[in-house]
Design a binder for these strands. Structure first.
Length: 888
DNA sequence: AACGAGACTTAGTAAACACTAG
DNA sequence: CTAGTGTTTACTAAGTCTCGTT
């Protein structure tokens, strides 16, 4: 049946072990989601850990390796024969479609198979032929190989990709895995392989892991020092700083003239999108009339009034934030394409200006003190403050940084400073560390004061008035300057992220609102009134040239409504997924290569919850892929693996350079198709050369309105949660045990979606603390039990009321202790299972909150146990509308 | 079709904060 | 109250997908 066999699959995981992939056994095959999932985990994690180790070891623990995922790539980069095929490779291995990776062969145990493939291919002569033909014509895509030198063609593309030639991982990574596997196989992640987490392995897994994690580290720090809008500047410094908020009205400013209407006009043309349709379906009854009114509140209004939207809640007012509770979900649909009718805000808050270093903090060049100009010093400080980060030792990072740093130097400085190796930033590093230490040591009062100031800033800039309601803005602070640190092996790491000025910022608000005022002495780049978009301000960033936006917070109606629609679309898919699955299975047999590729890719997206995989430019970002952009080197075919037939091994870096490594048993037709897709191609060539996300999404759109590749992730994630909850929840369990079940269901989803996290730095420690607590509790119980026995014996003799009372009390105590013990144990299990899996992402972005709310209501688990305050705010709509009968 | 800009969602980590045990 | 921990929030990079152009 269905590939997914999800159902069955689902069931399979045993309640407890569910998450645990440990049992990868049979299920894996089937399942997909569930079982399959687990697999990933194991692999992935393990792998990851291994990688990590790498780093760590190599790089030195402390710093985290910026590239965590990169695997050993960092320095060595060994060239992975395979990967780069572009260039040299091409020549080298031109043809061997099958085993392109000669070198790697060892890694790919599958080699033999390849041979098969070829033969097979012949078999499917028809197909083969077709393919060839395509290839020939398919020039567009670099088709490769077809002819001998195909390589070259392919080469080009790839070339560009990894320009540096360093290939990343592939081989390395494999290697590492292997190692790990062999070595401590178990240790890594247990999962699928059946072993259960062997945590024990101190060597690799644990230790390694944690450090590894660290490795990750990010670029963030760069900006850090920045600080917040703290006290100091408050008023003066600030030209940029917004605080000036004066009183005057800038509005008249410029462009505004364009009639709002006009703008709206142009945009609105679009047709309604699915989501919208859904939307409307929801509450047909309510009409928009009411919103209308709100819409054009008078310009001035300000906060006070907003509450009114929902009369009822107005009450608490004074107290905390707004009375909130504006039940926007009970209102009728908005006019489509129009995101707001009225929008007023105070504009973004800029990063504080640079504060020059005190004179005693010096920069040395070639051992000699050198006074830098302000800007040069500022940029030097960005580098200096991250000195203990591993990436300041990376060539790419250093090179990019130095290049950009020189650009801000004065001619004289540029003349002198020609070698980064001769720069000594250590005093800056020390200085900034000291400053942050001081901040930590501040007295309570001082901290209090800062906090107050921050709150005032939030109160002033953190909210906007949209259609008469006061709503929180998500990111009203503009990103401070610093050194860019992309994730993974990013070609631009170390580049200078420039300071954003008001002149770079476009403000979006109602024409009839009070316009935000640019900081004193500055002007906005533009003030526009586009109500077809949701952003309040935007600017373009200098590293990738992309646009950054100031948008509303997740609790806002704009975001909430969209989120709700997202789940409605997924539920819609639920209704026709069988049909879609049947179709793509049928298409595996299609005569047309492009149809088969599309069908196989869709199968992966559905079964494994892979991301769509848009194409990306390798000069601009790390080399990562998704389903449609998988390359030949990312999958290995194993006719047989660990007792299963037709196993596809995935090993690639996905979003954020997180590794995805999984062994998946697939159906024979899929396997055969993959062999064909790989034929005559070498590493670096696209696996699905006749497919891209546009084609795929277009096809999906035809099958269901509003359907795109990512809907499958949402659907499978939510569906898995619902099924797992059904499976794992025991009515007799205590609330704590039920929560564990919930977390396990959540975990199954996180594994499916490959949501990883680094092992918390303090994991080992906190785990052993927990264990100690458990041991102690056990001791207590033993003691208590003994005492109880003693009392009992006593009572036998005395039979007096007093002893009876004591006996009773003792008994109660024992029970209490046992319960506490159980709770601790549950906690320990949960923690261990969650070591390197991040539940947050799926909870926040993939799981229909109504499923969780319904579950809570059904089992009488307080929602607070599942969602914290922020989450409850974000999912207020679901909490309010779902009852225990909700079905996804 | 291929591109590129634009808009918005999804993602993991570090900083900030809250909480607890000592 | 302090230090150590666990949790939440801030931050911003990295995806997806749409749309208008060429």
């Amino acid at each position: 049946m269905d590939p997914q066999s999800g159902d069955s699959g689902i069931g399979s995981p045993d309640p407890q072990g569910v998450p645990k992939p440990s049992e990868g056994k049979s299920k894996k095959t089937v399942e997909n989601h569930l079982n399959g999932t687990p697999n990933h985990v194991s692999h992935k994690h393990s792998s990851s850990s291994s990688h990590k180790h790498h780093h760590k070891s190599s790089s030195g623990d402390k710093h985290k390796d910026p590239n965590r995922h990169k695997h050993g790539s960092s320095g060595e980069k060994s060239k992975d024969p395979n990967r780069h095929k572009h260039k040299e490779h091409s020549s080298s291995k031109p043809k061997d479609p099958n085993k392109p990776s000669s070198g790697s062969s060892k890694d790919h145990s599958s080699k033999p198979k390849d041979g098969h493939h070829s033969s097979e291919k012949h078999k499917h002569s028809s197909e083969g032929a077709e393919k060839h033909k395509h290839s020939s014509d398919g020039t567009e895509k670099h088709k490769h190989s077809s002819e001998g030198k195909g390589k070259s063609s392919s080469g080009d593309k790839h070339k560009e990709r990894h320009k540096d030639g360093s290939s990343k991982h592939s081989s390395d990574k494999h290697r590492s895995d292997k190692v790990k596997k062999e070595g401590s196989s178990s240790s890594s992640k247990p999962k699928s392989s059946g072993d259960v987490k062997v945590k024990t392995e101190p060597g690799l897994s644990e230790k390694g892991a944690s450090p590894t994690k660290l490795v990750i580290k990010k670029e963030k720090e760069a900006s850090q020092p920045v600080v917040n809008w703290e006290p100091q500047d408050s008023d003066d410094d600030v030209p940029l700083a917004v605080r000036a908020q004066g009183e005057k009205r800038a509005h008249e400013s410029d462009s505004d003239d364009e009639p709002l209407a006009a703008r709206a006009e142009k945009k609105k043309i679009k047709k309604e999108k699915p989501a919208e349709a859904v939307a409307r379906k929801r509450k047909a009854e309510s009409d928009d009339d009411d919103d209308k009114p709100i819409a054009k509140p008078k310009p001035k209004k300000k906060k006070g009034k907003e509450e009114k939207a929902t009369p009822e809640k107005g009450k608490k007012k004074a107290k905390k934030e707004e009375p909130e509770v504006w039940k926007w979900w009970e209102e009728g649909p908005r006019e489509e394409g129009v995101k707001w009718k009225f929008l007023e805000h105070k504009g973004p808050v800029f990063a504080p200006l640079y504060e020059p270093l005190p004179d005693d903090v010096q920069f040395l060049y070639d051992g000699k003190v050198m006074k830098l100009s302000e800007e040069t010093e500022e940029v030097a400080g960005f580098f200096g403050r991250m000195l203990d980060h591993d990436y300041t030792t990376k060539d790419v990072f250093r090179k990019n940084f130095f290049h950009d740093w020189r650009k801000v130097m004065t001619p004289e400085e540029r003349k002198v400073i020609t070698n980064l190796d001769k720069c000594d930033f250590r005093q800056m590093d020390v200085y900034y560390k000291q400053k942050s230490e001081e901040r930590k040591q501040m007295s309570k009062e001082e901290k209090q004061e800062i906090k107050k100031k921050n709150e005032a800033t939030v109160e002033e800039y953190g909210f906007c008035n949209i259609d008469g309601h006061k709503q929180r803005i998500g990111n009203f602070k503009i990103e401070p300057p610093g050194l860019f640190r992309g994730r993974g092996d990013h070609p631009k790491m170390g580049m200078l992220k420039k300071r954003v000025r008001p002149e770079d910022v476009i403000i979006n608000c109602s024409k009839d609102s009070e316009y935000p005022e640019a900081p004193a002495g500055h002007k906005w780049k533009e003030v526009r009134h586009d109500n077809s978009v949701t952003w309040l301000a935007s600017w373009s960033e200098n590293i990738q040239g992309s646009i950054k936006y100031v948008m509303l917070n997740a609790t806002s109606r704009l975001k909430g409504e969209k989120d709700w629609m997202k789940y409605e679309t997924a539920r819609k898919l639920h209704k026709c997924v069988d049909r879609i699955r049947a179709q793509y299975r049928e298409e595996w047999k299609s005569k047309e290569m492009r149809i088969r590729q599309r069908a196989v890719a869709l199968y992966f997206i559905d079964k494994l919850a892979l991301r769509a995989g848009n194409e990306k430019d390798s000069d601009e970002a790390a080399d990562t892929v998704g389903c449609c952009s998988l390359r030949v080197e990312h999958i290995n075919l194993h006719r047989e693996h660990e007792g299963k037939e037709f196993v596809v091994e995935f090993d690639f870096l996905g979003k954020d350079s997180i590794r995805y490594h999984n062994f998946v048993a697939v159906e024979k037709k899929v396997f055969k198709n993959l062999q064909l897709f790989k034929e005559n191609k070498s590493d670096g060539d696209d696996l699905f050369d006749r497919l891209n996300t546009t084609i795929l999404n277009k096809h999906l759109q035809d099958m269901m309105e509003g359907l795109t590749a990512k809907v499958f992730r949402t659907y499978n994630a939510s569906n898995t949660l619902q099924q797992q909850l059904k499976l794992l929840t025991n009515s007799e369990d205590s609330v704590a045990a039920k929560i564990l079940s919930y977390n396990r269901a959540n975990r199954a989803v996180a594994i499916l979606c490959n949501h990883q996290r680094s092992v918390p730095k303090t994991f080992e420690k906190s785990m052993s603390n927990l264990q100690a607590k458990i041991d102690k509790k056990k001791e207590d119980i033993k003691k208590s039990r003994k005492e109880y026995k003693g009392l009992k014996a006593d009572y036998k003799h005395k039979r007096d009321a007093k002893t009876a009372g004591m006996l009773e009390r003792k008994k109660k105590q024992m029970e209490r202790l046992e319960e506490q013990l159980m709770k601790l144990e549950v906690q320990a299990t949960d923690k261990e299972e969650n070591k390197e899996i991040a539940l947050g992402t799926s909870k926040l972005n993939y799981l229909d909150p109504r499923i969780s709310v319904a579950w809570c209501k059904k089992w009488e688990v307080p929602v607070e146990k599942i969602y914290n305050k922020t989450q409850r705010e974000k999912f207020a709509w679901a909490i309010d509308m779902a009852d225990e009968t909700f079905e996804f």
